[in-house]
Design a protein around this nucleic acid. Structure first.
Lengths: 329, 329
DNA sequence: AGCCTGTAATAATTCGAATTAGCACCTTGA
DNA sequence: TCAAGGTGCTAATTCGAATTATTACAGGCT
């Protein structure tokens, strides 16, 4: 197997020094560097003849960037059961990575010590990348704290509470989106609301519930919070509008109501808050909002670029887009 | 911007030399190298505390392994329009990569000079990875030849013709799968067949058509080949069984026939050969075969491991599984 | 003391390309 | 004839980790 050509080889063939080859190759014409046209031509001719291409490895060693961005997820990204959630984010990430000329490193080697991957284990490879995008509904708090403590350049997709310091993130503005939904419902005459879902745990859940509470408080209305949707219970309390954190919960509620002979949105309005932890039927046109997942992916990579270049700590919330369905009236 | 830690830094902290850190890190215990347990422990402690990981670039400049496997595709992998095709392969790739403890590098930086990515451009990063899996319906012949010529470890998913030498690949055994379909149809009484699809260009197309021709020849029957499916033309020629390369073409044919009041498979049988270049409706239960995409992904990574370890040139075709649908009778 | 034998660690070099400092040569001009 | 200034190129160093050759030192033996 023919050994790869080096600049030294080219230099020898052209009867010049390795430095000259490098200068010609990089077309350096700035101050203090001059190569005679005749020499330049001779070197270029040898390069053309041999088809020499600079070894990217050696080249990267010199500047301080590998042009590799890491993508960390707490579970495998490709299984189709996870596709609904990860896919749109990754699409944006890939797009922007292509834009800035970086390759993406998926940390598949992070062995699941007990089912779930960890960023920091005895042989963490996180530093292989120049920086890292964190992807997942929730993020291990210890991992997060360590990332901050060790000043590893990273950006979380999804807002994160401080963890021993501010956490750079690109999230969705759930409070605003939920408030908007409540306000629309109020405008249509609704007065008694229920929030169905965890409302706690992951920041994304807490943010939604917070938006809900803010909205009902601002309107001076009643709003209750339950973990699970009990149709009878809701109806019994005179609730006319339900906000379901999970899309699948919302859809299930609509189907259950209709099965019971109730009209949606005639008797009950159901709004969804976009969470897609579980796959949901797509034959129910729920009213709610769309999480700008792809855009979040793009922005996360842009933010990471800023972190890498200026050492900043970007935090940004993107607006969610209202989706006109058939379940609000 | 916090500079990346180097072995020199670790050495300073542990009060030893850079060489010692390297030796400890690589767990070198062979002849002539000895590190006192106490020293080793001290160095390891600093490494653990700092989360230091060797710079892959520098490491790769010197020897040959990074535990990074590259994945090259000629287009973005994540857009949902491409998901049907890439997803199952990637699932297998990710699975096996996790198995062997390697991270995956997606070459998103390969600038699309004119829409399509290229492996070799002025700053090819292919060598960042230990080896590379090539993914796509067709592969640029020049790229392939250069990979072979430069002895870059790689494995193609999908059989490839020689390109200045044998091309390592893990493919699907289309000829056998198509022959099997024809034989089944013959057993049910069919005598006149048509193959609908390119049948040329990509190896996967050519292989299918070859299998088709072999099968009808072996049975001494008639088989015609057309690029596009014209229902009238097919019927006019007395054809009773159509093999459609593309799933979407097969589905379209079935829908068109039924719209025309024809019965499938009563009046016409339609078989699909699994190509998923375009998204297809999933409400038509086509009879045909399943391409073991996920398994191919797995095997490709295994094959790549063999290439890396033994310098072999594995070539393997996996069997396709017959899928009993409702369109053959 | 002098010599040998292990043991434990380090200095120095290597990989390939980029960069900086500086050398050797050639004109000019006084 | 010699300093000044410009031109064209190269030697030497750098990046970070791996490896080879070498040194330093302790303890045992004659």
């Amino acid at each position: 197997m023919a050994k790869r050509l080096t600049q030294q080889d080219i230099a020898r063939m052209a009867g010049v020094s390795q430095a000259t080859v490098s200068l010609v190759l990089n077309n350096r014409t700035d101050s203090g560097v001059r190569i005679a046209d005749e020499t330049r031509a001779r070197v270029l001719e040898v390069i053309r003849r041999t088809g020499y291409v600079a070894n990217p490895i050696a080249r990267r060693l010199h500047d301080q960037r590998n042009r590799i961005l890491g993508v960390f997820t707490y579970e495998a990204v490709f299984p189709s059961t996870r596709a609904d959630f990860y896919q749109p984010f990754l699409e944006g990430i890939e797009e922007q990575a292509e834009e800035v000329g970086c390759d993406l490193l998926l940390f598949t080697s992070a062995k699941a010590a007990g089912g779930r991957r960890r960023i920091f284990n005895d042989d963490s490879r996180i530093r292989l990348a120049d920086g890292c995008v964190l992807l997942g509904r929730s993020v291990d708090r210890d991992d997060l704290a360590q990332l901050v403590a060790e000043a590893i350049p990273f950006v979380s997709i999804g807002r994160r509470d401080d963890a021993g310091g501010p956490v750079p993130h690109v999230g969705a503005d759930y409070p605003a989106a939920v408030r908007d939904l409540v306000d629309r419902a109020v405008a249509l005459g609704h007065r008694k609301f229920a929030y169905v879902g965890a409302g706690t745990g992951a920041e994304s859940s807490a943010d939604r519930l917070r938006g809900f509470k803010q909205a009902v408080a601002a309107q001076g209305l009643e709003g209750t919070h339950v973990q699970f949707a009990g149709l009878d219970q809701l109806r019994g309390n005179g609730i006319t509008c339900v906000l379901a954190e999970e899309v699948s919960d919302g859809a299930a509620l609509v189907l259950a109501a209709r099965e019971r002979g109730l009209s949606v949105p005639g008797d009950l309005s159901v709004l969804t808050l976009g969470a897609a932890t579980r796959p949901a039927p797509d034959d129910v046109a729920l009213t709610g909002f769309r999480i700008p997942r792809r855009e979040m992916g793009r922005r996360a990579v842009q933010a990471l670029t800023e972190v890498l270049e200026h050492g900043t700590t970007p935090q940004e919330l993107l607006a969610c887009e209202f989706v006109e369905g058939t379940t609000l009236g």
